[in-house]
């Protein structure tokens, strides 16, 4: 589904992503693990054309999408749930959802499906997004990116700032979406919870991939245990 090869990204003169390669097959949940400042968000932004890579290639569904502007990526079937569940806080839940389907024309806008997945959003349809609780906002952020009917969803730290119980709810939702056929790229520093629902993972440190494997392998890995699981 997604192939990234030899990606290098700079912020000005600062080399932040070094020769990054990764692969995600259709139907997988893959996690990129990393602590603060490892470059996780930069990777996500580069996938969506919000950063231009200095070198390397990004292919989605076999097509080269490297350096394409963001508004051409979403219609190809890859949607982003941004970090800190950034919504349009002064717009209604309904308008936020409409914006999710903006790039892909109206046909993909399946409100019935979204509202059956997230009934609470149906109740709050006319409410301003900024007045929702943290968990509801995360649900709305996910719902919004589903409005484009993507084949692959990229989630940037969906558990950030949520209570442990809500983290569980969000991750369960992600797993359910995956069971319905959605490919998922999860970017997380909440390592244990993320790996528990993932098939595979990559470990990102200082802009480099330093390890990869199946979730079980990573959960048993001495380095991962020491650095991320506090064991």
């Amino acid at each position: 589904m997604l192939d990234v090869a030899g990606l290098d990204v700079y912020h000005g003169n600062l080399h932040v992503i070094w020769d990054l390669s990764l692969h995600i097959s259709g139907g997988e949940i893959v996690t990129i693990l990393g602590s603060n400042g490892a470059g996780k968000t930069t990777v996500v932004e580069t996938l969506f054309g919000l950063n231009t890579p200095a070198s390397g290639k990004i292919a989605f569904r076999g097509e080269d999408i490297t350096g394409l502007p963001p508004f051409t990526i979403v219609p190809r079937g890859m949607s982003l749930v941004p970090e800190k569940r950034e919504l349009f806080p002064k717009m209604t839940v309904r308008e936020n959802l409409e914006l999710g389907a903006f790039a892909t024309s109206k046909e993909t806008a399946d409100y019935d499906r979204i509202f059956s997945l997230f009934p609470v959003l149906h109740e709050r349809e006319g409410q301003l997004a900024g007045t929702l609780s943290g968990g509801e906002q995360q649900m709305l952020a996910i719902a919004r990116s589903l409005m484009a009917a993507p084949g692959m969803l990229v989630l940037d730290e969906p558990s950030l700032g949520l209570s442990p119980k809500l983290v569980g709810t969000v991750l369960d939702t992600i797993r359910d979406l995956n069971r319905d056929g959605l490919t998922i790229l999860l970017v997380e520093q909440n390592v244990r919870n993320a790996l528990e629902i993932s098939h595979r993972g990559y470990v990102l440190e200082n802009g480099r991939i330093v390890g990869s494997g199946t979730s079980d392998e990573l959960l048993e890995d001495e380095h991962v245990k020491a650095a991320y699981l506090g064991a």
Binding site: P70, F71, E86, F88, L99, F102, A103, T104
Partner: peptide, 9 residues
């Protein structure tokens, strides 16, 4: 930024 991520030019 968010608008761009949502696919708006």
């Amino acid at each position: 930024l968010e608008a761009r991520a949502a696919g708006i030019d």
